[in-house]
Amino acid sequence: MEFVDTLINILNSTIRVSVPLLLACLAGLYSERAGIFDIGLEGKMLAGAFAGAAAAAVYGSAWIGLGMAVLVSVALALVHGFASITHRGNQIVSGVAINFIAAGSTIILGQAWFNQGGRTPSLPPEGRFGSNTLPFAEELRGVPVIGQIYSGLLSGHSLLAYAAFLAVPFTWWVLFRTRFGLRLRAVGENPAAVDTAGISVTWLRYRAVICTGILTGLAGSYMSLSQNAGFVKDMSAGRGFIALAALIFAKWRPVPAMFACLLFGFLDAMAIRYQGIALPMIGKIPVQFMQALPYVLTVILLAGFIGKAIPPRAGGVPYVKER
């Protein structure tokens, strides 16, 4: 029984650390499927986390915080769109710029507004998305395995966590079962064809970028309004890049994206739990090895040693209408 408890514990923390990854990963999915590379996920998450925590601290409401996070994150996404769609700038350069602007301004503004060394004030319960207990979770706690999974693993997460996992089938439906999704995928593969069909490439790509902004805003809010009670500087700590890695790992598909995020989350949870503990046969694994593993796996995948990750064909290429 102890083994099941430990396992459920690890899986539970896996879910918790996977949520921001998953939201950011789906965010990247919309943009990259539309042919706009986005390495600014990290910056948008961070800005969203800060805006959410700041608004929630001032107004004392988690929902206002969430709204503000989405607003700021969408604004940054539009800057990326403005640079890479309207002005046909280099998408990588633009993403790098957004990461820096977010990293710097969250600290500067946080310090100027709250005077707590770049933190926002600790949020009261009503300023956060607390854990939700699913129906009958308490009653079923005693039932072996099934009850334990239900009440220990599935129940007790915040609203945003459930939203993140619901966003996976939703994204799949949008991309593969709606007209918008079909066009979005088409514009990432062959924008000229979409243009010939009389559909605006610019507007379509802008909508994709806005979707990215909304989801990174949610990812940021999860970090500062749910996982933690407030904003701490640099709290995204490279998660935007892990999400990017997961997106490549999933070959730009929603359901595999979820599993990739869970896998990377699992590695993270294991690294936190087993730091410095010697394993039988292998000996002591340095924590740093576990932390580097997602990146190493992504590099190996990109190199084509485990299947081949082929990005959307028009990704990274600005569209120039023929004249």
Binding site: V79, F82, A83, S84, H87, R88, G89, N90, Q91, V93, S94, V96, A97, I98, N99, F100, I101, A102, A103, G104, S105, I107, I108, G118
Partner: peptide, 19 residues
């Protein structure tokens, strides 16, 4: 950290928005 912002803005305006 102000420099990080300036750095980002320089990259944005001299790089991505150079035209």
């Amino acid at each position: 950290d102000m420099i990080v912002i300036i750095q980002g803005l320089v990259i944005l305006f001299a790089g991505a928005l150079e035209h």
